[in-house]
Amino acid sequence: MNNADGGVRVLDLDGRPTPWRAWWADLWQHRDVLAMLARADFHVRYKRAAFGVIWAVVVPLLQGIVLAVVFSRIIRVGRGPDFGAYVMSGVLAWNYFTQTLANGSTAVVEGRNLTDKVWFPRAMLPIVPALANIVGLTVSMAVLVVVAPLLGAHLGVRVLLLPVAMLLLITFTVALSLCLSALHVYFRDVRFLVQATLLIWLYVTPIAYPAKLLGQLAPYLDFNPMTGVVDVFRLAIVGPQPNQVRAITVTLVFTIALVFIAVEAFRRHDRLFVDRL
């Protein structure tokens, strides 16, 4: 833990975990570094590609179009006139989630060359991709708002909920990334478990199809925390979803629990990860 003593930083370490408050303070002190790392991460990811950040937006949009066409034209799920906007809002949120989680869940292990000489809270590492990907998320949401009317959505004041939706998405993603990245240090198969789970998770979240398609099973979708996240995006773009309150409550409970677990894990293991890298 770090204490200041007349302006001089003092480090006192023993075998005990970092106290809750000191852990948060340490993270807060490093906010500039966090921002800098996120900026660097973003630059590195898109610097060398010819169209740069455009890819960060085009890829998920394309994915959304494909899913919308496949599910509405080929599989012919019961669709309303706003199905395009419905699918697109879900896909864009989902895309941020998977991209961030893929990088975030392995961030502590991947960042080992950063961590064995200099101290900074390790929790920053999984947060970095979550911050870096916000740029792509924001731009694609802006594009969505512009094209939503063309996709059959009637935008209203509800669209102001979009930042709230993004905040919920980001918080949930960060919390899950933190937990998984800590686990990944000790169990290296977490990386593959995440990849496999994400594949299945996409289809148990009402992204490309309306929940009612599942009939009796539909309520169970609400126990999937991503359902609540997607519902808030839908609420902002296309309008209220059935059972959205229940789904969003589930998401909030999950998010709070994950944040709690993550902080507990990191304040205990922050300074032990390096022994396993």
Partner: peptide
């Protein structure tokens, strides 16, 4: 001393900002 890892027992006390002088640039 760098605070990168913590002791299993005993106490480490470091006063002042620590910089490691190393050949491979961190990060």
């Amino acid at each position: 001393i760098a605070g990168v890892t913590q002791p299993t027992e005993g106490r480490v006390h470091v006063r002042g900002r620590v910089a490691p002088l190393i050949s491979v640039g961190v990060g």
